[in-house]
């Protein structure tokens, strides 16, 4: 059993707001080796028209993965996290994420597919600000290797 197929089409309630902190943006930028000044220096970011330090493009996935945890941690979804492999990822920014943002995420399960020893689940996180304006859309496809297919 890879992923409960009944989960396709499911939509979860909005998450509690995620507050994007300036030091977290800097720490995340360091972790991915992003040295552009707009990630670290608020004045440099403002010079480019941003209100505060800009998060690296993949930071939205940090926010999305917190929402995806609702699925991963759900025992009825029956996902063995130790067998999960990230298959693909796509991030669309309706506007850049920056420090000071308060982000709310709605997790959608768009598809569950099982074939040839792999079950894949496609999730879509719609991230918006607390007023409801869209910020980012994060689409992830996770593959779960089915236990009986793993060589001894």
């Amino acid at each position: 059993m890879g992923i409960n197929p009944a989960y396709a089409g499911r939509e979860y309630p909005p998450t509690a707001p995620y507050v994007v902190g300036r030091e977290h943006v800097r720490d995340f930028a360091r972790a991915v080796g992003a040295t552009h000044p707009a990630h670290h220096d608020a004045d440099a970011a403002r010079a480019l028209g941003h209100p505060d330090v800009v998060a690296p493009p993949t930071f939205a996935v940090v926010v999305a993965q917190r929402a995806e945890a609702q699925l991963i941690a759900d025992p009825e979804a029956a996902i063995d996290f130790s067998r999960v492999v990230h298959a693909d990822e796509r991030i669309t920014h309706h506007r850049p994420v920056h420090a000071g943002d308060e982000l709310v995420t709605v997790l959608h399960i768009d598809a569950v597919v099982e074939r040839s020893g792999l079950a894949t689940v496609t999730t879509r996180c719609e991230i918006s600000d607390v007023a409801g304006a869209p910020v980012s859309t994060v689409v992830s496809r996770l593959a779960v290797r089915l236990a009986e297919e793993v060589p001894a």
């Binding site: 972790a31 080796g33 040295t35 552009h36 707009a38 800009v54 690296p56 993949t58 669309t92 850049p96």
Partner: peptide
């Protein structure tokens, strides 16, 4: 994925210029 895009952000001159990124 996060490390690979840095060269694009630096080239573009603004990391906020990245509107879509998929791998």
């Amino acid at each position: 994925m996060g490390a690979a895009v840095n060269l694009v952000c630096d080239w573009a001159g603004d990391p906020g210029a990245v509107v879509d990124y998929g791998v």
